[in-house]
Structure formats: structure tokens, C-alpha cells
Computed example of a mutant assay.
Amino acid sequence: MAGGPPALPYRGFSILARCAFAGADLVLGEGFDAQKILSRLAAERITHVSLTPTMLAQLAALGSPPPKLRHALVGGASLSPRLAREAADLGWPVQPTYGMTETCSQLATRSCLPEGWRGGRMGRPLPGVEIGLTEDGRPKARGPIVMNGYANPTLASGDGLRDGWFVASDFAEISPSGELNILGRADDVIVTGGKKVLPSVVEDLLADCPGIGHYAVMGQPDPLWGAIVAVLYDGPIPPDDLLAWRRGEAAAAFRPRAAHRIEPFPLLANGKIDRLALRKRAFGDETQTGAVGKQDFAADDR
């Protein structure tokens, strides 16, 4: 089942292709209305559904899934451990996925959600997919699901590939057993005081924070440190309380120094966070008065 407006002709194309190859019936939805989607899942005895984390959150807020649903593939954005666990406890068969358009939307899928699952831990790659890491720690993949190359005037294959490998714009680790752990987007890395901070590490610390809804971690420009770690969020928790949450458990460079409450939180039509709009609202002229907290620190606190 696919949601979201048909703004682009290829939106959800991998879902169409998977169903065609499997000989499965496909149910399409116009837009995304959680109550209507939940009703259709039950009425049409749907067994598989593809969701973004935002869609999953809206469905889980309505309760448990229909008993016929066996797979809820969740991708398109970072899935927080808190949301994954809350949905799984309600009976949603949560299966975190990782992939991109260039790899038919999937490279790896966690077939079940183990206890203590942490965001980014995607398990082993799909059958027939070979993965590796570049020298700077970016995941690369090759196999039958990888594109032949980007469209170009001469229709030459291989455009955008390196010796047949597609390199993603993320940082990752591969365990000795071959499991893929996504650390975060390479272009989201925050350089603060000369130290590199992956937002996903900070977001893991916030996963269980009470009173927080949507959230993202970004680098806020700072004249002294170059950037400081900032949390952009919605929810009732005051910014100063958010900054104090689990503060002692994080290394100094990873401690959030600023928090901005952004309401309404900007989302794209597919449920992903609109990071460009979010950054503009937080660090431009539109940040809400009275919704900002900031912690000062000395050089020896780094």
C-alpha cells in the first residue's frame, strides 16, 4: 500500500515493481489519512504495508494493526527506537529498511525488531546484494538492484557508479557478521570546535525523552565553535528541560547546547522532515520567541 500525493511519476515505483514480480495485489491510497488507511488495512486484508516513520506514528496512535498484517516496512527517514518499540508493543510488525531510489529503495531490511534495537541497525543486506565501505566510511553497494547509471545525453551506463558500486551519502559501519549499521548522513555531520558529531548519536540520546514529538539535530552556526549541537523539536517539554535530559551521559562535544521548539513542525508530503524549512525556521528570522533554550559552556567543557 502506498501513500502520499502523486506529485512525481516515480513515487512508490519500487512498490509497484515488487508487487508485479511477486504476483501480489496492490492497493493504492490517495494521500495519507491514518484512520482511512487503518480501515482499509482491515477491510481489504492487506498483509504488507510500506510506511515512513511519520505514517507509522500516526497509525500507532490509533492502536493495534489488523491481525492479517504481517509486514510493515518502514523507511524513507530515520526511525527512532522509541517509535519502533512503541509500535511493536502494539503489535505492529515493524521492519526497518534502508535504501534509496538508485537501489530500488532497499539494500537491507531488518526482518524483526530485536529487544534493545537502536536506530540505524539494519541487519544483513538483501540476497544478491554486496555491500562495503569506502575509505571515508560511506556504504557502497552493487548487485542486481543497483541502477545502471543516471540518465545522460549519450545514454551511457555507469554514470554515478564507481566500478559498478553505488556509494551512498551516509556514514556506516559493517559488523564482523556482515550487518549494516547506518550512522547518519555525511552532509549532516556537525563540526564543533574541530570535532565531528554525528546527529544520529545525539538523536539516540533523545529517543526516550518525555514530552518530545518530532525532532532533528542540526549544527547551529556559532562564532566561537563554528557550530554547536542544536535540537529542533515539537512537543510540550521546555527547551531547558530538553537540554538537561541525559546530559551527563554524553561526551561534551555531543551535548546539545541549544533547543528550538518549532510548531508546526515542517514535514514533506511523504512524511519526511523538511530539513530545509526546518533549518530556515530555526536559524532564520522565524524561530518562535520564548521557545529557545541555550546552555553556555567554557572551553574546558569540551
Rank of each mutant, 00 (worst) to 15 (best):
P9L: 06
D241F: 01
L62A: 10
L16R: 00
R124N: 01
R257K: 14
H260M: 06
G119H: 07
S111E: 14
F265C: 03
R246M: 06
R246K: 13
A2E: 00
Y150W: 15
D170H: 11
P96D: 03
M147P: 05
P6F: 01
G164Y: 05
P239R: 03
A251I: 11
A259Q: 04
P221A: 09
R185C: 08
I212P: 06
M55K: 02
G31W: 11
P139Q: 07
P125S: 05
L8S: 03
I262P: 04
P221Q: 12
Q106N: 14
A151D: 13
G123M: 06
P114W: 05
P66N: 03
P176G: 03
R247F: 05
A24N: 01
G12M: 05
E30W: 06
P53G: 08
I262F: 06
E86A: 15
K272S: 15
A20T: 05
E102M: 12
E249P: 01
P6L: 01
W245A: 08
A298F: 08
F21P: 00
D188G: 08
W92A: 12
E30R: 07
P66D: 03
I174P: 06
E263S: 05
A2D: 00
G219V: 09
G143P: 06
G132F: 08
D241W: 04
L183E: 11
P139S: 10
L155F: 15
Q58P: 07
G293K: 02
I212A: 01
L276W: 07
N181W: 15
P266I: 03
S39N: 09
R255W: 02
S50L: 10
D33M: 03
D300E: 14
R82Q: 15
V189M: 14
D301R: 11
E249G: 06
R302T: 11
F283W: 02
I273R: 12
S111D: 12
K196Y: 14
G132I: 07
Y98K: 09
F283E: 04
D163L: 05
R246Y: 00
P127M: 04
W245Q: 10
I37N: 02
A207Q: 13
L8K: 02
I174E: 07
A227N: 10
G99Q: 08
L79W: 10
L278K: 02
I145N: 14
M100T: 15
G193R: 12
E179Y: 03
P176D: 01
A230W: 06
D274V: 01
I273H: 15
P153V: 15
L267I: 06
R18H: 03
R11S: 11
Y98H: 14
G219M: 11
I212Y: 01
I212D: 07
G219R: 07
A299P: 05
I190G: 10
R185P: 04
Q35R: 15
T52G: 10
L267D: 08
A141G: 13
W92D: 13
K280D: 10
G99L: 10
G137C: 13
V191A: 08
A34D: 09
Q95Y: 08
W245N: 08
Q220A: 15
A2M: 02
V231I: 09
G193A: 08
L83C: 06
G284K: 00
L59Y: 09
E102I: 12
A84F: 09
W92L: 13
A186M: 11
P81R: 07
